[in-house]
Amino acid sequence: MSKYVSPVPVLVATRCRDAGLDAVVVPVREGRKAICSLEKDAVFEPVAAPVPFLRGSESVTLLVLAGTGTVLADLRGVRIATGAEVIPLPPTWEAVWGTPPWHPRVRQPAVLPAGSTLRPVLESALSARV
């Protein structure tokens, strides 16, 4: 048996449902602007945790605490996926982790931000939309 083949079946979940989070989906261009702004703020405010997100070819999906994404639903160009809606996860052609929702050095989930904390950044990114 090759050392690269697992002797145990491996299950890779590529869809997520009822994960205890909300997904804030924005167009890719505006999503990249928002991520750049969030990462810049994290450099100057080391207390701020990075916001987990997925990159797709047409959108960026920011992950926030369950039940808090709906406060962003009124922003033009934003779609909120909650609860029973399916969110595509890596490794699929639909999604790649930008920042995963876990800590890289310890086996713990990352703390997700509340949706309201993203409002100023998303408003700014979406206002530049042409």
Rank of each mutant, 00 (worst) to 15 (best):
A114T: 05
G67D: 08
R17P: 00
I35Y: 02
P91W: 11
W102I: 00
T117Y: 05
V121F: 15
D18Y: 15
A23R: 10
P90S: 05
Q108E: 11
A125P: 03
V86Y: 01
V25K: 10
Y4N: 11
V43G: 03
P9I: 12
I35S: 08
V86P: 00
S37R: 10
M1N: 00
V60T: 13
K40L: 13
V121K: 03
L54W: 11
V60D: 04
G115K: 05
V64C: 10
Y4G: 00
P88G: 01
G56Y: 11
R129P: 00
W97T: 02
T14W: 05
R79I: 05
P52Q: 03
R119A: 10
I35M: 11
Q108F: 07
A81Y: 10
R105C: 10
S6V: 09
T14N: 06
V71E: 14
H103S: 10
A73M: 01
V64G: 05
L54C: 08
L72C: 04
A19N: 02
S124L: 12
V5I: 15
R129N: 12
R29W: 03
A125S: 11
V64T: 12
R105F: 13
A84N: 04
W97L: 04
P27N: 09
V51G: 01
E94M: 14
P46T: 06
R17M: 09
V24W: 10
I80S: 03
S124Q: 15
K40A: 14
A95C: 11
V60I: 15
D74Q: 10
R55M: 12
P120E: 05
V71H: 02
L122R: 07
A128D: 14
G20C: 11
P46M: 05
L118K: 02
A42S: 15
S6F: 09
R55S: 12
V26I: 10
L75P: 03
G56I: 11
Y4C: 01
R55I: 09
R15V: 13
R119C: 08
A42Y: 01
F53R: 15
E39V: 13
G67N: 09
V8M: 10
D74G: 12
E94Q: 14
C36K: 09
S124G: 04
L11I: 13
P50K: 06
S57Q: 08
V121C: 13
A95K: 10
V26G: 02
T117N: 01
S2F: 09
